[in-house]
Structure formats: C-alpha cells, structure tokens
Design a protein around this nucleic acid. Structure first.
Lengths: 230, 230
DNA sequence: CATTTATGATAGCATTACTATTATATTTGC
DNA sequence: GCAAATATAATAGTAATGCTATCATAAATG
C-alpha cells in the first residue's frame, strides 16, 4: 500500500474534533505527538498540558482542535478503523472466493501491525498498540449512548458489518456473524495484550503467530466452512 | 447457592487493600456503596469524596482501606473472579462427563448474572455490570506488569486455567485452551455491553440468550467436540 | 478505666481539565 | 504591499481531583 495514501486522507466523523487536525501543520503535529505520548505514558497520564510541552505549543491551542482528550482518543480510534477498512478493501481486491476473502480479512484484522509509513504523521505501529490498550476506554463510558448517536463508532460498526457480510456469503444462515467478528477483533487485541503482560491467559508464544491461526480456526469452524490455508 | 456463603467469605489478595474491608462495618459499607456508586456514575466520575458523602463517612477514612480507587476496583474484580470460581466449583460438583462440565462452565461464565443475595454487602448483579464495563480498566494500564507481579490478577488466571483444564480433558492436543477461554469470557462481556449500547456489533436479541448459545457453539466446534445440549 | 485503635473533621497541596483574555504572528484577499 | 481576518502563543484563573497531614473524638480491648 506504499505511497498510495499520500494523495488522500481518511475520513473521520467531523464531530469528534473542533477543527480538523489534518488542516494545519499544528493539527498534524498534535495527532502525531499524541500517538507518541499516549503510547509512552498511557491514556490516564496523558494530558494536553504535557502534549503542549512536547510539541512546544500551547495547551489552549490544542483545545482549539479537540474538546477533550477523550475526543482525541475517539479521533485516533476512528481513524484506525477507517484505515483498517481501507486495508481490507485493498487487501481483498480481485479475490473472488469468499472463503479466501474471509481468510485474508481475518489475517488483516488480527495480525500484528507494522509501521507502513503511508501517512507521514501517523505511526500505525504505535497507533495499533494504543487501540489495543486504550480503545475500550473510548466506548466503555457513561456517554456511550450519546456518542453512538453522534456517530462516533460508525467506522467500527461499518467494518464489522462488511466482514460479517463475507461470512453470510459463505454461510447465509449463520446466526451470529456480527458477534463472531466483533468477538474476534476484540479478542485478538486482548490476546496481544495478554501475550505481553499476562501470558497465563493466552497460549500465544512470542514470535509465531498463534493469534491469527487461532482466529482463523475458530471462525471457519464456527461457520462450518473450510479454511483455504489449511 | 443460597445461604451457603453466609458462613465464609471469599479470599482476595491482601495486597489490594490496606485494611481488609471485610473486617469492619465501615469496610463493608465502603464496598457495598462503591458498587452502587460506580455502577451509577461510572468509574471515571467515581471518587472517594463522593463515596464518603454517600456513606456519611470521610474521604480520609476510605483511604485507610484502599490506597486509591484503582485498588478498590482491583478488589472488586478480584472478588468477582473468586466468586465465579466458587460458582463453577459448586456448579460442576458431581458432574463427571467433561463435555457436560465444560458446557455448564461456559453457561456460568457467560450468562447474565442475577442477584443471588448470598453476600449481604455485595450486589452481584451490579458487580457483574461493573466487571463488564470497567474491569478492563483494571489491567489495561501502564502498571499492569507491576500489578501482575504482586498477584492482583491471580484469581482471573486461575479461573481461566481451571476451565482450560476441562478443555484439555476433552481434547488433550487442543493448542489454544487459554486463548479460547479468555476470549470467551471477555467476548461475552463485550457482547452484553454491545447488546445494550452498540447493537450493530452483535446479533444478540434482547431477551433470549444468544450469547450463551454462541459461546457454547464456538467452543465445542473449536475443540472438535459435541455440545451435550445440542 | 487506661490505652490502643478506628473514625471523623478540617485543611492543604499539586495536578487536572478546562476557560478567558490579551498579545503576537501568519495568511488572505484586494 | 497592506488591512483585515484568522491562527497561535502566553499567561492567568477556577473548580474538581487525588491525595496527605493533623488533630480531635469515639469505640473497642485488655
């Protein structure tokens, strides 16, 4: 996907920001450095004041882009899900067999993300770690219903919907396609976190990719289809 | 399990508290009311000052039991996992077929919890909602490794280990028992949350219990065994 | 009933999550 | 090239949070 995205940017619901951070150098710096800083110190310890110091700018200036650090997190996760949808759209182009499409989609959804440098100011590798460790904090809140109404989770829902559709192509009477996919996505994230920090909750040996294997196996068996790579 | 527990209390790692809240009326009041308050306002808005007002006691007094609200959350989740382990231990007593044991364990792990009143000062129904919405905040932190070393997640790990053992009884060469069980537990929690707040991420219709069905199906198919209730 | 121990009341402090104000750059439109 | 609009920086301020410290009082215990 190299260089493909230099020409366009991913759409994020414009209600998560006050001013679009893509629209200025400062905005891009805010996004770039927030990824570094959240990855480094964690979301609870992350503050706009610290971010201001980091980028030699001002706390008040950051507030002109994002209402709060929660909204910024929402921006980052929304961006991530948009990005994931593009990755999948491109990754599945010209593959016709639905089994192979599903197989590839699961790989893309559950694999360890590496830096691909398509977007200058976004480090996908670190962003993936943030999504794994912090994204549940963006929806496990008392404001979830309100935020949902405003469309802040649309990207995630759309992604789950798209992959579920592939499942239904393979097995039109499978009852739980959305459940299966959302369980898988969240599950793979948890497993990556557990593999690093709470290994007794997983069987993922560092190095080999048990998480992808596990996800594929579970999915294809659940829907009663044969995994093309097995 | 009614009245069974009036005679004993569940063990929680004594390093999550400063003074054991089971040891005094104030301590039990703190636990009881913290469950109500966290359930009501959410963990971020929950503070010891508010809790003090609620129980007509003092912020400083609460700090004599728990170092911080994070430790209190850790206490609540640890208690929950201990409780879950007892539920399973009792629920599986005298069942010999490992398939039936697994089937029952999955039901107990993924079902919607109702108030059972075995512990006067703990509302299991609300605690379950807290565990669903807030428990990931107890381990998705920068302090996870430190906390893990101190044994704060021992109960959860033990529970996952026990259920994994049943899987291995059924299929000794299954490669991912821990992954499967931890994915299932977290997954069921997420699905209950999604069913209420983000229904497009799930297929759980309110009322019937798709989540248990889904969990059983996935598990037995993944390990290549037959679910006894199907 | 003296003493330890637990609780309560009050105060204080650094940090957080903002908002407001005013000053200074930078961009843009003509 | 300059006025006017717009974006950013600097500073200050406020209420709430997450504690800690001190001292007084109540309750339990030996």
């Amino acid at each position: 996907m190299q260089d493909l995205f230099t020409s366009f940017s991913l759409q994020v619901n414009n209600r998560v920001y006050i001013k679009n951070p893509e629209s200025s150098a400062l905005g891009r710096k805010i996004v770039e450095s927030s990824i570094n800083l959240i990855d480094e110190v964690g979301f609870e310890a992350f503050t706009f004041r610290k971010l201001g110091l980091e980028i030699h700018s001002n706390e008040a200036s950051i507030y002109r882009y994002f209402e709060s650090k929660y909204k910024l997190l929402l921006y980052l996760t929304s961006w991530y899900w948009s990005w994931m949808e593009y990755r999948i759209a491109f990754g599945l182009a010209n593959i016709h067999s639905p089994e192979e499409r599903l197989n590839k989609a699961i790989k893309l959804l559950t694999e360890n993300i590496e830096l691909d440098g398509s977007f200058e100011h976004i480090n996908e590798y670190k962003l993936n770690r943030i999504v794994i460790a912090e994204s549940s904090k963006s929806y496990m809140t008392k404001e979830v219903d309100q935020n949902n109404k405003e469309g802040f989770f649309a990207g995630y829902k759309q992604l789950v919907g798209r992959v579920s559709d592939i499942i239904l192509e393979i097995n039109p009477i499978y009852k739980y396609p959305h459940m299966l996919i959302s369980t898988l996505i969240e599950g793979a994230h948890h497993q990556r976190f557990f593999a690093q920090h709470l290994p007794r909750l997983t069987d993922a040996v560092n190095g080999e990719d048990a998480i992808i294997e596990f996800s594929k196996e579970v999915t294809f068996k659940a829907i009663g289809a044969k995994c093309p790579t097995k």
